[in-house]
Amino acid sequence: MVLFNYAFMCLIFGTTFLAIKVGVSAEAPPFFLAGIRFLAAGAILFLWMALRGKARFGLLLRKALALSGFCLTFVTFAALYWAEQYVSSGIAAVLSATGPMMILVLQAVVWRQRTSLLSAAGCAVGFAGVVLIMLPHLAEGAHPRWWIGSGVVLLGEAGYALGAIYAKSVTQRHASESPIAINAVQMAYGGLMLLALSAFTERVPVGALADSAAAGSLLYLTVVGSMFGHSLFYWLVARTNPVFPATWLYVSPPIALAVGALFLNERVAWISGLGVATVMAGTALANGPTLKRLLRRPSPDGTRLPSPEAARNRRRSHGA
């Protein structure tokens, strides 16, 4: 059951980038789409948890969760939705996989935490992969908006990395609360912020969701991507550990590239394909020390448990 749910989660997260592309390609306002998605998903999940007695309404008043929502949902997905107007869904997925490396860089540069040689090597390999992905577009004279969009995705991942580090302290302070409820609240806050951004920057037509592609994208991302995908993630965390489910980062980019090529005819040059493999290898190397600690620390019953530091590299549990 664990392996089946893990495979299903990877498939879901791998297809969300395609769904975002379909929505923004239907000319629906990107910030509006993202805001509706996360506000609806967060509200429904929170109410479901509250009705089951696993969430307190007092969580809605926590400023820390609003700040988490700003970094994890607002910054990350404002960048991703906007950028996918100009960047293919597959490339966006690969660039999004740089999040864990961003976390390591922030910890080393800002918080002066020591980084292992293996992690540093992983960051270097991952950066080389990003360069390889960009090379064909440089040779072909890609549109400036493609370059801007790619840069915006990376900036969004930097915001996510900052939020992930902050969220670790938030979850520790609210250890008695359900992590699903905490995630629901931060998603709802992020959704509200995205809608506020939309109100100031976008013209939202009356029939913005009348287009079947836009409506279908929103429904899929809200129900399947945000609600089912998140629930599977936390189910796997409860049954295994925080590290194992987060390895979706290494599996989903190839899925995103494949479905983008299949359904949207997105072209991937061979050197970009090499770059994809390099980014994933770098991400795996960068997380090597955490994985080693996970395998070395036995629990009283003989199973393996993650170290307290394993949560550092927990990826955006809500995927894309």
Rank of each mutant, 00 (worst) to 15 (best):
A175K: 05
F31E: 05
A181H: 06
V276H: 09
G151P: 06
G190D: 00
A188F: 00
G288F: 12
A261P: 15
S178F: 03
A128S: 15
A246T: 14
Y189T: 00
V206P: 02
I133Q: 11
L154W: 02
L104S: 09
T201A: 10
S299C: 13
P30I: 08
L117H: 09
S307P: 07
M101T: 08
Y160Q: 05
I148K: 12
G216A: 04
L72M: 12
M1S: 08
P300L: 11
G191P: 04
A158D: 00
T283M: 14
G23N: 06
K168P: 04
I12L: 13
G229K: 04
G122S: 12
G282C: 08
Q186H: 11
P306M: 09
K292I: 15
V237A: 04
S88E: 13
A124W: 01
L154E: 04
A188D: 02
L104T: 11
A167G: 03
P298N: 08
F32A: 11
L221Y: 06
I182T: 05
A121I: 08
F38E: 01
A214Q: 09
T201F: 13
I103D: 04
S178I: 06
G126P: 11
G275H: 14
V130D: 05
G273F: 15
A175M: 03
Y189L: 00
F74S: 02
V105E: 00
M193E: 09
T201E: 10
G90M: 13
S299M: 12
S150T: 13
A214Y: 05
I12N: 07
L197I: 00
T115L: 15
S272R: 10
I182N: 01
S25K: 04
G225R: 02
A64V: 00
L249H: 12
F13I: 06
A34L: 07
G149N: 09
L18S: 07
L138H: 08
R112M: 13
W82T: 13
A78C: 08
L18T: 06
T283Y: 04
L294W: 10
L249G: 14
V243G: 07
P179W: 02
L291E: 05
V131I: 15
I12Y: 03
A269N: 12
S178W: 01
L104G: 05
L61V: 01
L104A: 15
E202R: 08
G273P: 14
R56H: 07
S119K: 07
V279D: 05
S25Y: 04
R297P: 03
S96Y: 06
A139Y: 13
N287V: 04
T278R: 14
A124Y: 03
P30D: 12
E202N: 12
Q186V: 03
